[in-house]
Amino acid sequence: MKTILNKPVLVLQLQKQLNDIKDLCGEYDLGNHQIINFIAEKVLIIFQNTDQTKSLLNQLKLTPVLMFCSSELYDPKSLTNFIGLLKLGRQPEKGWSYLAKLDNSSLTKVSQNNWWQNKKVIIDSDGVPFTRSKIIKSFADDISLNLNTSGWKLKDADRNKLTINPIPETVRQIAFELLESFKNIDLNKESKLHLKV
C-alpha cells in the first residue's frame, strides 16, 4: 500500500535535507572529504525520480522553481577539457587543483530540468559529457564514473604532475547552487501541492 505524505510533512522533509546538506558542506569545507557521498545522497533525494518514487520537489510540486547555475558555457570548438563548475586555484600545501567556486556573483537562473538533466558540467578527455544528474547518481550510489581524466594533469606543491579528480569539488559546487536556489524560498507558499485536511 502506497503511503501519501501530506504537505507539512513533505516541507519538513525538504527543509531537513537542505539543512543536512548545509551542515555536511560545512564539514567538507573543514577537510572531512569522506562525507561527499552523503551530500550526493541528500541531493538525490531532493531531485531524483524513479519508477518507484518521486523526488521531494516533484511531490511538493516545486518543479517550476528556477535553479541557480554557475556553470561556464561549453565551447565545442575548445580543445581543452571542460570542467564548468570549478575554478583553478593554487593552495600552498597542495599545489594547483580544481576548487568549487562557492561564489554567487556569477549565478544565472535556469529551469530545474536544464540544471539537473541537460546542462553539461564536465566533458572528459574522451569528449563524454556529464550532467549534474549523472554525477550525483553515481556518487550517491557509490558507482564508479567512467571519467577519463588523462588530460587533466596539474603540478602539486613539489612540482610533481598529478591527475586530478574533479568530481568531489563538483558535487560540492552542485550543493552550493542548490542551497543558494532555495535559500530565500518559502517552501509552503511556493509549493503548488494543495494542503489536504
Rank of each mutant, 00 (worst) to 15 (best):
P64S: 13
D156W: 12
D142N: 11
I164Y: 03
Y74C: 06
I83M: 07
D124R: 01
V110N: 05
K87Y: 07
I164A: 11
L162Q: 12
K137P: 03
N32E: 14
L88S: 10
I45Q: 14
Q59H: 01
N58L: 08
T80Y: 15
K87G: 10
P92T: 07
A140T: 01
S97K: 14
R159C: 10
I35W: 01
N104M: 09
K77N: 11
L60A: 04
T50C: 01
L88V: 12
D124F: 02
E41L: 13
N146R: 10
I122T: 07
V121T: 00
Q117N: 14
K137G: 02
V43Y: 05
C69K: 09
T53E: 14
S106A: 11
V65Y: 09
D142F: 13
T163Y: 06
N148Q: 00
D156P: 10
S125I: 02
S144M: 11
W116K: 04
K119D: 08
W152Q: 13
P129G: 02
N113M: 04
A100P: 00
S70H: 01
D103Y: 03
Y28T: 03
S144K: 13
F82Q: 04
G89W: 06
V128G: 00
L88C: 10
P76I: 07
W96N: 08
K54W: 12
Q48V: 06
S111Y: 01
L145I: 12
A140P: 01
N165D: 15
W115E: 00
S138E: 10
L57V: 07
L57C: 06
L44V: 02
P76H: 05
D29P: 01
K87R: 15
S150L: 06
L66K: 12
P168E: 04
